[in-house]
């Protein structure tokens, strides 16, 4: 029986929704791993040139075909489905999440190109949950430390993104969002037309993202009612990047870190004011 009063369980639940969508998307596009595909293993294995790497990867060579990866992705979907029923802290739940983590690690060798920050955040959360919830050996203190790690990594991600934008002249001048939105890869025609019509919106959006991302870690130190402002901003930000830019997997991967941020905020013995 799954209880959502457990923060780690809530983190896992949100992440699993995103991972299920992402895995089904890979299943839909599994032909990219076929001999004719962009990520054909015939070619991708050239990336691993050293003999020790090749011998390490040899057991997985059959797995990296389109059919092998189809099986892997189907198994992954079943593991995720299982995690909706078995609690993380049960032995079965831990075994399911460990197998899920293993499948993500193995597949990452074949998806070197094409994976993004949301895949890395998902992997980071899964590995942390596996390590911090090992039956028998892990304590409640270790589970708390795992949540701290997830929250700190989330804050680091926003701050690094904010600072990197702050040092960029394209972001400071307020043209970056218009330029990104005008691409077919990450933009949309409607958003481009809107930003062309209202140029002031460009500058506002650029600076809004720069400031909020840079000071995001404040959400750990502010009283909860103020910290909530950052999480609501994050929710809206990721929702719109999903709608306008098609970055749907980022939404789930980053929303999964928010319960950990809530936990750390409530664990703080002092707040800024």
């Amino acid at each position: 029986m799954i209880l959502f009063n457990d923060i780690s369980q809530t983190v896992l639940f949100i992440l699993c929704v995103g991972l299920l969508i992402s895995t089904l998307e890979y299943l839909k596009k599994v032909e990219i791993f076929s001999p004719n595909g962009l990520l054909s293993w015939n070619v991708m294995q050239l990336k691993w040139t050293k003999q020790d790497q090749k011998s390490l990867l040899k057991p997985f060579f059959k797995l990296f075909s389109a059919s092998g990866l189809t099986v892997l992705f189907i198994i992954r979907c079943l593991l995720i489905a299982g995690l909706f029923f078995f609690p993380l802290q049960s032995t079965t739940g831990w075994l399911l999440i460990s197998l899920l983590g293993a499948s993500l690690l193995v597949a990452s060798l074949a998806t070197y190109y094409g994976s993004d920050g949301s895949d890395q955040m998902s992997m980071l959360i899964i590995i942390t949950l596996i390590l911090c919830n090992l039956p028998v050996l892990s304590s409640s203190k270790l589970r708390d430390i795992g949540l701290w790690f997830i929250a700190l990594q989330a804050c680091l991600s926003y701050t690094v993104a904010g600072i990197a934008k702050l040092v960029s002249s394209e972001w400071r001048s307020g043209t970056a969002i218009k330029d990104v939105f005008s691409t077919k890869t990450y933009g949309s025609k409607k958003a481009t037309l809107f930003l062309k019509k209202y140029p002031a919106a460009n500058r506002f959006l650029c600076w809004n993202v720069i400031i909020m991302e840079s000071i995001f870690p404040l959400c750990l130190f502010l009283p909860w009612e103020f910290a909530l402002v950052f999480l609501i901003w994050g929710f809206i930000f990721h929702f719109f990047t999903a709608v306008i830019m098609g970055l749907n997997s980022f939404f789930w991967a980053f929303m999964a870190t928010y319960p950990a941020i809530y936990f750390v905020n409530h664990q703080m013995s002092w707040h800024l004011f």
């Binding site: 920050g117 680091l156 991600s157 926003y158 690094v160 993104a161 990197a164 934008k165 040092v167 960029s168 394209e170 972001w171 970056a176 969002i177 330029d179 990104v180 005008s182 691409t183 890869t185 990450y186």
Partner: peptide, 10 residues
């Protein structure tokens, strides 16, 4: 974690 910065994909 430097998403779309310093040089956004245009």
């Amino acid at each position: 974690w430097t998403f779309f910065a310093p040089h956004p994909g245009k």
